[in-house]
Design a protein around this nucleic acid. Structure first.
Length: 811
DNA sequence: GCAAGGTC
């Protein structure tokens, strides 16, 4: 039985380069399914298992996601739906009990393609919308501000509305204007009690009027008992515990964040202490064995006696909740002690036990006594509370009714007022949104699921949009506030929770078979693409907020190295993501992350004249390698990305393997012995070895294995070799290039040409001398077409913008 | 470097 997705969607490699892809193109880009966990070889395993099988029975969660996985499995096993020889069956069940399983086995159905397609649709929409907006706003703002401290400025149809809730509360707080109010509070002494009476009018916002009422009451001096009543009320026991409620309690009462709470709950589950912790249901199935579940808890030292009492009473009935058809509520499965679990896990386990016992307990019953008074024409009252049956509050004492006893009164009594206070107070702003309130809001608006709510909250914390403060309240950061206020003034739809429900509603049409999958996806994406276009066009409105809050790149960072274009010094910005900024060219150059960057021997890259830098990875064993900031951002030849990603992940490429790629991680000569033999001559700038770049063969190029620079040879060169000749000017090796007749750029083709790669002018004259034409040229040379990263200019501005803040249209 | 959804 497979619960996890084997595949996830992504863009093909062509679209992975942020600089080479306009985000607006992502809306029409193809998508590919990739194995989520390639090392697990799940598709291979499924395919092997299915060999020779005549029937495939799919036992997966009975929801849309489960249906989607069904078709993944079908694909891996090479079964075909409706094939008469090898049959595909879907088991539909709502719980994993013997009865249910047998029933499902006897009633096998066909898998539901529409539901699976709805999931495909959601995946594609979420991917394209999220990635397009994220790439655009990340590039735009990172290219402008130095103290943003954000590796990525993400956007998503779940995370952004989640942030929206936090900022909405923040804005309520900041725009709140406290108001003064007054309350008339008479006090009486009766039967040994000093009672404060509550005013029917609550509070008044006019001090003169309030003072007038105070005078009326004082002038009268006696309260008269006008009525007395008692009625029985009850507090209902909780229904079964689902994930959302567990997370709320964990945050508000146990001080555990959702991420942490879920991790602990998962561990308790795998260790067998509790049932499956991801469930929406608060209702137990009718057949649920409460006696069996309570049994082990009898031995618990604290609630044991109460549980025994419950079992003895024989009256065990859980309150009806909602049955989402997924899993039963979270229930303790076996007894644990504090020593077995320790700390937070114990607290969470204890709560799960208390909640479960509460679920099968009686309701709490209590009597509410109300005494009404009149004085000077005004009405007052006081309330008494008396518990009749503790019920579930015995095991969940924090929910207990606070008893309040009252003295005896008789109707018509006249009692002397001891004093009349005119209480003066201020209305107060609400507090920051608590995590528990946020979870409630997310649940109410359908943002995220039981399994993903904690992830979204964690996301907005990690992205530095909000911070968790005391009492687990979420305080938005300047970045978070700017983002939401920006969406609000450009296109509020982007941060409203409706954006999620809109998507959900559209894909539900697919799930129900009422609309065609690809037409719905196209329809929804078209609308988002228009919104994207308008957002890009209006980004200055959001930028105005950023401008007021953050400092421009030019004012950030410290001077580090020289730019190869303008030859002025660039600044190194160390806040995430670390990068170089050339104030003159207004260009950003990213550098390898999580490490130190310093100048490398004041050497320059011969390709672009940028000063070389030395990167040292953090940690005692941190590797060190030199690099050119320009080449790092503008890979001079295909395949270099692989090298850089190796650098980023810390996996050195092994020399000798992988077509003899140079090792960028280790500039030490012994590490490149396999390359030395291919070496042509010394790099004129850093004296590393220039080697043939095997990636580009037969279009030969030379690359320096040390500073990463690259020298292009003319197209059609099919063999090059070094000569014994030295350049008279710089003493560099003279190289000979051989052309085919067909491919030669020169008229005389099929001849040997020679030149020095170092001395541009001499080279020129050498070649002109010999052949009348220069063919050694730095690839692209200065002022190449492709700009550095992060420059937002001219990017992503092709979206259509006719219909700015259009609201979503249903399919 | 990017979304949201699963999960062990």
């Amino acid at each position: 039985m497979f619960h996890c997705l084997q595949f996830s969607v992504d863009f093909p490699a062509k679209y992975q380069d942020w600089t080479a892809t306009d985000p607006t193109d992502l809306f029409q880009a193809p998508i590919v399914k990739t194995e989520s966990n390639p090392k697990a070889h799940i598709p291979r395993h499924l395919s092997q298992e299915a060999r020779g099988c005549s029937h495939l029975v799919l036992w997966l969660d009975c929801d849309r996601e489960g249906e989607n996985i069904c078709f993944e499995v079908i694909e891996c096993t090479e079964f075909v739906v409706h094939d008469t020889r090898r049959k595909v069956h879907r088991a539909r069940f709502s719980s994993v009990t013997e009865k249910d399983i047998l029933k499902a086995m006897d009633n096998l159905v066909a898998p539901n393609k529409d539901e699976a397609l709805a999931v495909d649709a959601r995946q594609e929409i979420d991917l394209k919308v999220g990635v397009a907006f994220t790439r655009f706003q990340t590039s735009y703002f990172q290219g402008k501000y130095g103290n943003l401290d954000a590796r990525v400025i993400s956007y998503g149809p779940c995370q952004t509305p989640t942030l929206g809730f936090c900022v909405q509360r923040y804005l309520q707080i900041t725009t709140f204007k406290p108001e003064k109010f007054w309350i008339v509070r008479p006090y009486i002494l009766q039967g040994g009690y000093d009672l404060q009476l509550d005013w029917e009018r609550g509070k008044l916002f006019d001090s003169e009027v309030a003072a007038m009422f105070q005078k009326l009451v004082m002038d009268d001096g006696f309260v008269k008992v006008t009525d007395m009543s008692e009625k029985q009320e009850s507090k209902t026991r909780p229904s079964g515990l689902n994930t959302v409620n567990l997370l709320k309690v964990a945050s508000s009462a146990l001080g555990l964040g959702p991420q942490m709470a879920m991790q602990i709950a998962e561990r308790l589950y795998t260790q067998g202490f509790i049932s499956y912790p991801r469930t929406e249901s608060t209702s137990y199935p009718l057949s649920f064995d409460f006696k069996g579940a309570l049994g082990p808890l009898v031995k618990d030292p604290t609630c044991g006696p109460y549980v025994q009492q419950l079992l003895n009473s024989g009256h065990l009935k859980a309150r009806q909740g909602t049955d989402a058809g997924d899993h039963p509520p979270i229930t303790p499965m076996r007894l644990a002690t504090e020593d077995m679990l320790g700390g937070d896990a114990w607290k969470l386990y204890q709560y799960i036990c208390q909640h479960f016992i509460g679920t099968v307990s009686a309701d709490c019953k209590y009597a509410r006594t109300m005494v009404d008074f009149s004085v000077g024409g005004e009405s007052f009252h006081c309330v008494g509370l008396r518990v009749i049956v503790k019920g579930f509050t015995a095991v969940m004492p924090w929910l207990a009714v606070n008893e309040k006893s009252l003295p005896q009164f008789s109707k018509g009594d006249k009692i002397k007022i001891s004093k009349v206070e005119l209480y003066e107070g201020y209305t107060t702003a609400p507090d920051y949104l608590s995590e528990s309130e946020l979870i409630s809001l997310m649940e109410k608006h359908g943002i995220g699921t039981d399994a993903s709510i904690s992830v979204h909250i964690n996301n907005i914390c990690e992205r530095n949009y909000v911070q968790v403060q005391g009492g687990r309240r979420l305080v938005p950061t300047e970045l978070g506030i700017c983002l939401i206020r920006g969406y609000q003034c450009i296109d509020p739809d982007l941060c409203l929770p409706d954006i999620r429900s809109f998507i959900e509603h559209q894909i539900t049409l697919v799930a129900k078979g009422q609309a065609d999958h690809s037409r719905v996806v196209h329809h929804v994406l078209l609308q988002f693409k228009q919104k994207y276009g308008y957002f890009v066009k209006q980004i200055e409105n959001m930028d105005a907020l950023f401008e007021a809050q953050f400092s421009p790149l030019a004012d950030s960072g410290r001077v580090l190295s020289r730019c190869g274009k303008c030859l002025r010094y660039m600044k190194y910005i160390s806040t995430q993501p670390s990068r170089l900024f050339c104030g003159t060219c207004e260009e950003v150059y990213y550098v390898p992350q999580r490490g130190a960057v310093k100048l490398y021997k004041e050497l320059e890259c011969p390709l672009d004249n940028f000063q070389l830098l030395l990167f040292s990875m953090a940690g005692p064993e941190g590797k060190t390698f030199p690099f050119c900031p320009y080449c790092y951002n503008n890979p001079p030849f295909e395949g270099i990305d692989t090298l850089f990603s190796a650098v980023k992940t810390g996996n050195s490429t092994t020399p000798g393997k992988g077509a003899g790629m140079p090792c960028f991680l280790c500039p030490h000569p012994t590490c490149r012995h396999s390359l030395i033999s291919q070496g042509v001559c010394a790099c004129p700038e850093c004296h590393g070895t220039l080697v043939l770049d095997p990636v580009s063969a037969p279009k030969w190029r030379l690359s320096c294995n040390l500073c990463n620079c690259l020298v292009s040879l003319p197209h059609g060169a099919h063999r090059i070799s070094t000569t014994k000749d030295r350049c008279p000017e710089c003493d560099s090796t003279i190289i000979e290039v051989d052309f085919n007749k067909k491919t030669s750029p020169l008229k005389d083709g099929n001849t040997l040409h020679a030149g020095c790669i170092l001395c541009d002018e001499l080279l020129h004259s050498l070649i002109e001398m010999k052949h009348g034409k220069s063919f050694f040229r730095h690839r692209g040379g200065r002022g190449r077409g492709r700009g550095g990263r992060g420059g937002h200019r001219g990017r992503g501005r092709r979206g259509k913008t006719e219909d700015p803040k259009m609201s979503f249209r249903d399919f």
